[in-house]
Every structure is written in structure tokens, then in C-alpha cells.
Design a protein around this nucleic acid. Sequence first.
DNA 1: AAGGTATACAACCGCAGTCTT
DNA 2: CAAGACTGCGGTTGTATACCT
Length: 303
Amino acid sequence: MGRRPCCDKVGLKKGPWSADEDQKLRGFIKTNGTKYCWRAVPQRAGLLRCGKSCRLRWANYLRPDLKNDLLSKKDENLVIDLHSQFGNKWSKIASHLPGRTDNYIKNYWHNHIKKKLNNMGIDPITHKPLVPRPPTHDHHNKSRKELRKSRELEMHHQHEGKSIDEAPVLEKSVIPNNDNLDLVKENLTIDTGFSVDDIPLIQPHEMLIPPLPDDHLPSNNCPPSSIPTPSTSTKCISSSTLNLICEKLKSLPYWFTNDPCKNYNIGNTSYAEDGEFTDWDWLLNNFDIDKIDPEIFSKEKKD
DNA sequence: AAGGTATACAACCGCAGTCTT
DNA sequence: CAAGACTGCGGTTGTATACCT
């Protein structure tokens, strides 16, 4: 047996609330509190709304403790951090921000934060660097709105851990992995024309570097500018090595340094309080070229 | 200036969990 | 224990306004 709808909806008003309706609801709650179940509220308050609509209006808009101003930079960072932990659990995120509702956080995410993260080259769903997609004819045939929609769907599927082929989208992104590395590289090398929306506004020094395997991470006993080697000795980087590293890295497509495969991990990743990525500094300070899989460079030569 | 498009926000919808009877 | 009622939640849609061509 299914649930009955909360009301028959016949003769009830829908859409935006008028100031008069707000006044009636506000006055009713002020006088009676929320002791009545919401189904009873519209009739008692003289409103032609369903109880659920009243509850939402009160919870998301009329409650006196709500803040309506934009989030501060600090709160924005908090939302981003919480979203990376909880995903789209808007109520959970909102519970950390007094005076904000889940609906407010959800809207704010979609209208402000998501765009900012995209511009920073960060996938707002996975919180990982965006991967550029080879262009398709769809870029020319579809409206920007349609493209955005299909891209959102696509990212959602990636977040759900589904394969690319499972995503019902018109343009497929390609995630580098052991199986398709060459294919990805080929696509990126042959055709680098992206739509304007695809270009992440990210500078080379802002690139994320995936984490080293634990046994390659510097231990607390090591000085900041050194890194343990398999022989347990430590090495400091020379300027010539640094130049070599830079030259080698410059020759790689940027996704190489973001490869989710562990084979090419050469750095550690973190996100600083002020929104700056710090690991490029770490990489330059601690990098040991001997630890790079030589196959990276041999692949370059082969291509 | 007008029409089209993008953006921001409010509100709705429907599912699911919890409570009540 | 089962069924219904209520509430919370997340996704989606509608709409007003701003912006662009």
C-alpha cells in the first residue's frame, strides 16, 4: 500500500509566496509556535497552501535565525571541505554553518562554488583535477546549456565510479588509466582544441601531484629538503637536477602528473587553508628523479 | 532596442526514515 | 507488527533578473 499524498492539492496555490502569505505564516508561527503538525497549519493560518509547502517556506526562508547574505571566504572554504568529505549531504554540510539551510547551501554550491572550482581546474564532484576531453562534433551542434547538462551527468557518473561507457552522455571524457593511456595521450596530442568552457584556468605551478606511495614519503625524521631513498641515505636536489626535472615535466601532458595510476606518482597532494596548492613547492624541494619510472620518458620517446 | 541565454534563487517533487496509532 | 502520518532530504524545475549578441 502506497503512501497517501500529503494533501489533495485541489484548489491550493503553488509557486512563489506573496508577502501577505508570508505575513500570515509568520504570524501564525509566532503565536502558536510549531506545536501543530504542518498539515494543520495552512487551514489554521488561513493559507491556501499544502502543509509541506508551509514547512519549506518557514524552514528555508521565514525562520528568524536565517542569514541571507553571501558566504564569507572562510565559510566557502568550509563548505568545499565539508563537501569533499560528505558529498551532496547538504543538510550535514548546513549543520556546520549556523543560519544556513541545506537548500541555501545546495543553491550556493551550484551557483557559486561549483563555478569557482571549475575555473580552478578542480572537479567540483570528485575534488580532483579536471581532465580535459578530446573535442567532439557535439561542441558545435549543442547549445552551451545542453553541453553543461551532459557534462554534469558525466561527472556524476565518474563520481559514482561507473565506467565511461555507462555514462549516457554525448561527449565522453577520458580518464587516463593503464588501459587507455596511449589512447588518451593520442587524443590530447593530435587535437588540442578545447571549447572555451573546457579550459581550466590553472597555472602550471598550481597543478596537483598525486601522492607518493607511503614508503616514498618523507618521514618526520628527515629534513624538509630531503627524501629517503631505498638505500636509506638522503639526497638534496641540485640546480641541474631541478632544471632536468622541469624540462622533463614540461614535456609531459599535464594529466601525466595527475595520473590516477600509481605508476607515475611523484609527489604529494594537499590543499592549503588559503586555497593554494602547496605540493609543487614540495616537489621541487624533495624530488628525486631516480624515483620516476623510466617508462614515462621511454613512452615519450616512443610517441 | 529586442530577443536569446545564463544565472541565482525559491519552490516543488518524491523517496525514505522515523514516529504514532 | 503493520499501516499511515509526518518530517527530512536531495534532486529537479520554475521564474525573475542580468547579461549578451
